[in-house]
Computed example of a mutant assay.
Amino acid sequence: MRLRIPTLLTLLVLLAGLLSGCGYNTFQTGDEAIKSAWSEVLNQYQRRADLVPNLVATVQGYASHEKDVLTQVTQARARVGAIQATPELVNNPEAFAKFQQAQAGLTSALSRLLVVSENYPQLKADAAFRDLQAQLEGTENRITVARNRYIKAVEGYNVSVRTFPNNLTAMLFGYTVKPNFSVENEKAISTAPKVDFARPAPASPAAAAPTDAGRPSPAPGY
């Protein structure tokens, strides 16, 4: 027996209400929020990767013998570029971990490069280098913001997937928790690498400490 149109519409309305009440719509909203946040993370990471070739070339012009550090940065960027950051990556914990590891490697290599640059006053005074330095600092800050937004989006989604009664809908439709930036990178998430060369290096403790030869002799009887 075929259902009448009014009856079918009633069933559809009831089904929509059940799905909404059990978190189905919440999953859709959360999934879209994650996709949007992830796109911004990738955008900022790509912005940083695009700065690397010019940064390496500029440093190389003043410190060509720092081959190890320059090579590390170039290789770290190559590892980042080798990862296909597709939308499906956020659903694959293993692939997400590899992406995270590659980005952390580039962050570390860039930090070492900037530390080495402290030893070259002419490099620090170069206008092109200072411009790249400012761009990198701004990009690192935007990466921090984008990552934090992604973390919050995934956190909200994962809570929905794991709590009752939404978890029943999640099991029915195959929704699972998504990987997030790991706890061991929390410091990197909250603190952008230091790229300010304006302040002079602090004096070493040995240089600051007075020597015995420069101390006055004690008064007699003391």
Rank of each mutant, 00 (worst) to 15 (best):
E140C: 02
A49F: 09
L168P: 03
Q101P: 04
R79F: 08
N54E: 09
L11C: 14
K152P: 02
A57T: 13
R149T: 05
L110R: 02
F96P: 01
R147D: 02
T176R: 14
A97R: 14
T29H: 04
L110E: 04
A128Y: 04
C22G: 08
Q135E: 11
R149A: 07
N92E: 09
L3H: 03
S204W: 05
N167E: 07
A127C: 05
R2A: 06
E186H: 00
L106S: 09
G30D: 11
A78R: 12
L136V: 09
S111E: 06
L110P: 01
N148Y: 03
P87V: 13
E88S: 15
S117M: 03
P210N: 11
P6K: 09
T169M: 15
R112D: 11
A198V: 02
V59L: 02
E186F: 03
T74G: 04
K124H: 12
Q101L: 09
K178L: 04
R4S: 14
P179G: 12
Y120N: 06
V73Y: 11
Q100L: 02
G221R: 07
A201C: 03
G21A: 15
V73W: 01
V80L: 10
G174R: 10
G156E: 11
P193I: 11
K178I: 07
N119C: 03
L8N: 01
G105S: 13
Q75T: 15
E88K: 14
V177W: 01
